[in-house]
Simulated assay, not measured.
Amino acid sequence: MSLLAFDHVDACYGAARILNDVSFNVDAGERVAVLGRNGVGKTTVVNTLCGGTTIRAGEVRINDRGHTDLPHYLAARSGIATVLQGRGILPNLTIEENLLLGASVGRKGPWSLEAVYGLFPILRERSTNMGLGLSGGQQQMLAIGRALMANPDLLVLDEPSEGLAPVIVDELAELFNRLGRDGTAIMLIEQNVGLIQRVAERYYVLSKGQVIESGSLEGMSTEQLQRHIAI
């Protein structure tokens, strides 16, 4: 079953059209990468999913139900959790309060505060600290933990490796693969070649707001993948 599909979507900010006839899908249990250089519309895909754009044509399908007007809460309530570029940590809340926000959609599943603390022990140790009182890698743990608290079927990650040391990126790759093995679908919007190669099974390439290529990552060389990212 398709957890998420864009079906010939044109998406705009005001009068500015950013996505032009974009189609892609992520099925249950898949790990899919969305590639392309900065400014081609990748984050607009996430913003559209979260109700931050106007859909002028086409529809977004969530669990095989089509939508042309998405309230900001619909994706989360439907089992799609997002980790935004820049992490979106609320600075006036503690680490634990940031995590509990993820559970506000009320979905049942394996992820609870204790489960997230088991995955990221540093968050338990600092649970009463303010959300921004963490290193970059720890803030990414917090953002991912908050998303998991929603017990998603699909986890959408927008540039999760941005600004992180290679050792932390390695840890993220292991985590995303573990989540995938446990049945959580992954949509990875990323430019880090190593992370893409270790996590994703297939890909879409965005260029100037359009999907221009898609396929399997199996057997693709690092050089080929780098060329796709640079389009």
Rank of each mutant, 00 (worst) to 15 (best):
I62K: 11
I62F: 11
V83Q: 01
V105H: 10
R77E: 10
R65H: 15
L84V: 13
L101H: 06
R87C: 01
I55Y: 04
Q85C: 11
N38Q: 11
V83W: 01
H67P: 04
T53D: 08
V34C: 10
T94K: 07
G58T: 14
Y73V: 03
L70V: 03
T54E: 11
T48G: 03
K42F: 07
V34F: 06
D69H: 15
G79S: 03
D69S: 09
G88P: 04
L93E: 02
V46D: 02
L74R: 08
I62V: 11
G52F: 10
T53G: 10
G88I: 12
A103C: 13
L100V: 05
T48M: 01
I80S: 03
P71V: 05
G88M: 06
L100E: 07
Y73G: 04
D69E: 08
A76R: 05
Y73D: 13
L101R: 09
G88Q: 09
T82G: 02
A57R: 13
R65C: 09
R61M: 12
S78I: 06
E96I: 11
L35I: 05
G41V: 05
V40W: 06
D64Y: 04
I80G: 05
L70K: 02
G51E: 00
R65M: 09
H72S: 10
P91M: 07
T68G: 10
G36I: 07
V45N: 00
L93V: 09
E59K: 11
G52D: 01
A76P: 04
E59I: 00
T82I: 03
G86C: 02
L99V: 04
T44L: 02
N98F: 04
R56G: 08
A57M: 06
G41F: 11
G86R: 10
G36F: 07
I89C: 10
P91S: 14
R77F: 00
R37H: 10
L74D: 00
R37Q: 12
G52C: 07
